[in-house]
Amino acid sequence: MQRLEPEQIAQRVAADIPDGAYVNLGIGLPTMVANYVPDDREVIYHSENGILGVGPAPEPGTENPELINAGKQYVTLLPGGCYFDNAESFAMMRGGHLDIAVLGAFQVSARGDLANWATNNDKYPPAVGGAMDLAVGAKQVFVLMRHTTKDDQPKILEQCDYPLTGQAVVKRIYTDLAVIDVTDDGLRVRELYAGNSLEDVQALTGVRLLPPA
């Protein structure tokens, strides 16, 4: 079976980001998607703290400590970019103005419920940030995650057993094994990476998968 490296999943998501899209990339692995979007596509990246037109990391020595992204990394602003306050930023998110949000996940359910902000470990202090607003607000929510936990337990389940970030919000799941669409009929495999059979992927998935259409 073929398992993609995290960078390769990011690359696969990037292929589906269209020219002209307004996109929010979640903290961590989703942020890497920007590295792989082809140069001939103009994509405007949003950062929840209040930036549209986020550019690459600054050259060493030119960082502005005030200019950071949601992951608290130093960034730059592209020509045409702008700043705004947090309430306006979340109006963009919640109000359906972003075309795509790419988010990490602990679990996704058969109907597209997303669990990505907390586990069931109540000894660990919680934090939620902008995850719930993006989940309900972006026109399309793409999840980028490993197909299973580190001990090969499925993360795509009939029901999430971790606390939900949002109900029925995920549109597509990109994992290291396959690309899966959340449809009205259920989870439909959109793409199997070379070397992976539907049976292989099904065996690591907690819900019945529909074959590619």
Binding site: D85, N86, M93, R94
Partner: peptide, 27 residues
């Protein structure tokens, strides 16, 4: 949720008595 935090602050400053948000519903 961050957008609920900022909108609650905005509402207080704008004289709004509350608001319905889809964020967090069912969580």
């Amino acid at each position: 949720p961050q957008g609920t935090l900022s909108e609650r602050i905005r509402a207080a400053g704008a004289g709004i008595g509350g608001f319905f948000t889809p964020t967090g519903y069912g969580t």
